[in-house]
Simulated assay, not measured.
Amino acid sequence: MRLRPLLLATLVCATVPAWADSSACMDNASTQMAMNECVGRELKAADQKLNDTYRTLLSKVSKEGAEQLRKAQRAWLAWRDAQCTFDTMGTRGGSINSMQTAMCVEKLTQAQTAHLAAQLHCKEGDVSCGGQ
């Protein structure tokens, strides 16, 4: 079941306590469960930022651009999940797997957020940007 690690990471995100600082959180985490909670909190924040950026971009593009953005985002989500399943195969079955999966998803989510945000801040004359 390749979705099991992502489901576990999602459940971790939903139950994460609201610690003030994620780096302090990891520094003070002494169990795998505590580390999972820290990483889950970071993933939740990254996912929220991606969703905000996506919605902002969606509101600024044409109808055709919105259709293509939705299609691209769905494809990206499927790729991200498959990529992280592949990347974390070495930890499958271990207690660290959900943390490794969440870290992978967070990293790729941050990259996608930056990619979408770039479309919101096109430089003048860049014909590959903002024409949607």
Rank of each mutant, 00 (worst) to 15 (best):
residue 34 A to I: 00
residue 20 A to C: 05
residue 41 R to A: 14
residue 85 T to Q: 11
residue 100 Q to D: 11
residue 82 A to L: 13
residue 8 L to D: 09
residue 16 V to C: 06
residue 124 E to N: 05
residue 100 Q to N: 10
residue 13 C to N: 00
residue 25 C to K: 05
residue 80 R to P: 02
residue 65 G to D: 04
residue 17 P to G: 05
residue 28 N to T: 12
residue 50 L to Y: 03
residue 84 C to Q: 05
residue 67 E to D: 13
residue 66 A to W: 00
residue 114 A to K: 15
residue 71 K to S: 06
residue 61 V to I: 14
residue 61 V to A: 01
residue 11 L to D: 03
residue 95 S to Q: 14
residue 117 A to I: 01
residue 44 K to A: 13
residue 51 N to V: 00
residue 54 Y to C: 04
residue 20 A to E: 15
residue 74 R to F: 04
residue 37 E to Y: 07
residue 129 C to E: 07
residue 48 Q to M: 10
residue 26 M to P: 00
residue 129 C to N: 11
residue 89 M to H: 09
residue 126 D to P: 02
residue 35 M to R: 15
residue 100 Q to K: 06
residue 64 E to G: 10
residue 5 P to Y: 06
residue 18 A to E: 14
residue 73 Q to F: 08
residue 45 A to E: 13
residue 52 D to Y: 02
residue 48 Q to A: 11
residue 73 Q to M: 09
residue 93 G to A: 08
residue 83 Q to R: 10
residue 26 M to H: 10
residue 16 V to M: 05
residue 48 Q to E: 08
residue 24 A to D: 14
residue 33 M to E: 15
residue 53 T to R: 03
residue 55 R to V: 13
residue 79 W to G: 06
residue 87 D to E: 13
residue 82 A to R: 06
residue 86 F to N: 06
residue 97 N to W: 07
residue 125 G to S: 07
residue 13 C to S: 15
residue 28 N to H: 06
